[in-house]
């Protein structure tokens, strides 16, 4: 990309910023699962996230954290309620519109890290970029490798996704989620498999990304080490926001 293009892009994103108060805005979200009987797992959730904030979501297993995150990430639709991402209402968008939105705006680190086993670690990291249909230049590759270096997996960059340890896979998934400089990073137990040192590293990486790019972080975690360092802790219990604490 030329310099002027970068500039234009920045100006655009600044402009966009003015259009909305919250990067993520959930209004009156209900979620039911229908498995024979209807089970309600989210109850009238109202939740706003400021752009550039660092947030954690905690709560017991089965409380609805992943469900909430999937709705936040536009992968799932709420049974009732409205979801706004960067000022745009998403719960009525078409699947293809959502796909573009996700690719450009949201980085995911899933609870079960989900790499593509047909691809090497590096190729996995590059995938979001490829999906955006831009050309993978050597510069882009360098960026991917730098990301991998930063979280300490450059040694395994040419390994197939299946030929890595759980922790390496997880870190690859994190690098991948950051590839497109998303406005929002959604991470579901991103450090589940990592030791304390790696956990701290991941957190530091998140912080750095947040500071450098203003990425909004929303992290589901049961790790106190991570949660206590975020600016806001949201505790979900039984499908409701039980606590919403700011540092």
């Amino acid at each position: 990309m030329s310099k002027s293009a970068v500039k234009i892009k920045n100006e655009e994103s600044i402009k966009e910023k003015e259009d909305y108060e919250y990067i993520v805005d959930l209004k009156h979200i209900d979620k039911f699962y229908y498995t024979g009987v209807a089970t309600q797992v989210l109850f009238d959730i109202n939740l706003q996230f400021k752009a550039g904030s660092v947030n954690s979501i905690v709560g017991p297993s089965g409380s609805g954290k992943s469900t909430l995150m999937n709705i936040l990430g536009t992968l799932d639709k709420p049974t009732k309620g409205e979801v706004y991402i960067a000022g745009k209402r998403t719960d009525q968008m078409s699947k293809n519109e959502l796909a573009i939105l996700r690719n450009q705006t949201i980085g995911f680190v899933f609870q079960f890290h989900y790499l593509l086993p047909e691809y090497t670690a590096l190729e996995n990291v590059l995938m979001p970029f490829e999906i955006s249909r831009q050309k993978v230049t050597s510069k882009v590759k360098e960026k991917a490798i730098n990301l991998m270096k930063f979280i300490g997996i450059e040694d395994v960059k040419d390994n197939l996704a299946t030929k890595m340890s759980g922790g390496q896979q997880q870190r690859t998934a994190i690098a991948r989620s950051l590839m497109n400089n998303p406005k929002i990073l959604l991470a579901d137990e991103p450090t589940g498999n990592l030791d304390t040192e790696a956990t701290d590293k991941v957190y530091n990486l998140f912080r750095e990304i947040n500071e450098k790019f203003g990425t909004t972080l929303i992290v589901i975690t049961h790790e106190r080490r991570i949660a206590e360092k975020t600016d806001r802790i949201i505790e979900i219990r039984d499908g409701k926001i039980h606590l919403d604490l700011y540092k």
Partner: peptide, 15 residues
Amino acid sequence: QRQLGILKAMGINNR
């Protein structure tokens, strides 16, 4: 389908 799900989550369209 796992791979397709991941790819779709990352933003490939249905086409």
